[in-house]
Amino acid sequence: MVKKNMVKKLLLLVAMMTFPTLSQAQLPFIVVASTTSTEQSGLFKFLLPVFEKLAGMQVRVVALGTGQALDLARRGDADVAFVHDTELELKFVADGHAVGRREVMFNDFILIGPQSDPAHIAGGKDIVEGLKRVASSKSAFVSRGDRSGTHAAELRLWGISGIDPHSGKGSWYRETGSGMGPALNTASAMNAYILADRGTWISFRNRGDSVILIEGDKRLFNQYGVMLVNPARHPHVKVELGNRFINWLVSPEGQKTIAGYSIDGQQLFFANAAPGR
């Protein structure tokens, strides 16, 4: 018996030496389904350590497009969803997949394009007019095409302009089906126009000849919301831990932390949570 125990202990020791990372002790944690733009803007790297230290828990972020992130939450594979497509979010809550949605912050979308600007839209303030010119000049336009929040916003704007961009498929309208970063890589390589979120753009390094051409239109407003996956549907959801995170995000400290994140002196997100309920 003693010998057996020794062997067991020895095996455990060998395993711990071979797999030091895997045998680490774990803090309590939640899984947050969020978006690539939030992750790639570097916000989480800045924000989460502050919260984790304060709350003594870990926040594990899985970054996908907004649509995929909500799918993940719908299947119960996340405790919290932190995304940016107000319309979809409200429907998601109405359908009973999540509860207690709170608005957290916003940033804005910008229209990026090549310096040569073949559609002549630089400096404009009207995004719809800009898109119309891109379409009429048949200038290359890269779309995320991945059901992300940014993709949804882009499609809404095309809708307002009355243009069906899919008629330009195969010629000037190009869907990449990828995240913000890869899409920006593609656009920069093809000297194409693209709708992007400012956060990703500021931290993006492979810009090539691309520059911001249109910004500041109210319709480019990009609201982020956070919600708890409905524990009535998914009993394993960590309600207490999830709420702790959500409540902190919308608390004065959380809001102050978000507002304090900047790259090269540019603030990326503007905290706008409604005061506590």
Binding site: F29, E39, G181, N185, T200, S203, F204
Partner: peptide, 16 residues
């Protein structure tokens, strides 16, 4: 937690 070399490479590529 689950970030490995290849997923880091994919992420950094995304960030340009």
């Amino acid at each position: 937690v689950t970030r490995v070399m290849t997923t880091t490479i994919a992420l950094e590529t995304s960030k340009g």
